[in-house]
């Protein structure tokens, strides 16, 4: 009987561990910037998903490619049609882990500099990346912010020679997501 209780407690305990505090958003803001002297291109996605596991320091992002908005309609069309092939590859994802993670105390407001590494998948191609970021605790809410560079060619996106001066070979990506606890 005792053993049964122990086993149940163990199971129950792990159940709790599995559902330990996780933070999420479905309205994360991910943007990218391609700057050349000839043309500045920026895409903005304000409906990216993010889940952060407070106990393990794992975090994951996902953005629908078609959710990126551009100033110019034609840029958006070409982005989807010619470069990202968003019908074939509808999502970009990142699955990562904060390095040397110590669980964040969400009861204290403040900024924590972190280093995150993981796998970034764009255009069907997965690469390991790592970047510095900042997690801000504000009244038991978390904000994640990071900026990093992506080499367009790494993800099998070819830039035709005709527009090679208009599109940067390295694109800056900004991530800015405010997370709430999953209830």
């Amino acid at each position: 009987m005792n053993q049964l209780i122990i086993i149940l407690a163990f199971t129950f305990g792990s159940f709790h561990a599995g559902n330990a505090q996780k933070y999420f958003t479905k309205t994360g803001y991910i943007s990218f910037y391609s700057d050349t002297p000839i043309e500045k291109i920026a895409g903005h996605n304000k409906s990216s998903s993010c889940v952060f596991d407070l106990s393990s320091g794992k975090l994951e992002f996902a953005s629908l490619i078609k959710g990126f908005q551009f100033e110019k309609a034609l840029m958006q069309e070409h982005f989807n049609e010619n470069y990202m092939e968003s019908t074939k590859f509808p999502k970009a994802t990142f699955k990562g882990q904060i390095e040397n993670y110590k669980p964040i105390d969400v009861t204290h407001n403040g900024k924590i500099n972190v280093k995150v590494s993981g796998q970034l998948t764009i255009h069907g191609i997965t690469k390991n990346i790592s970047t510095e970021g900042v997690i801000t605790v504000n009244n038991s809410k978390l904000n994640t912010y990071a900026e990093f560079n992506v080499l367009v060619a790494d993800y099998g996106i070819s830039i035709p020679s005709l527009v090679k001066d208009q599109i940067a070979k390295t694109v800056k990506v900004k991530v800015d997501a405010s997370l709430d606890v999953i209830k």
Binding site: I7, L8, F10, T11, S14, F15, A17, G18, K22, F24, K26, S49, V51, F52, D53, S56, K58, L59, E60, A62, T93, K95, I182
Partner: peptide
Amino acid sequence: LFLSIFLSFGLHAQEDDLLSLL
């Protein structure tokens, strides 16, 4: 014992894909 290990595995496996929680 097997059941409990299995259960806790199942629960941990879920953690591998955090986004599925949404």
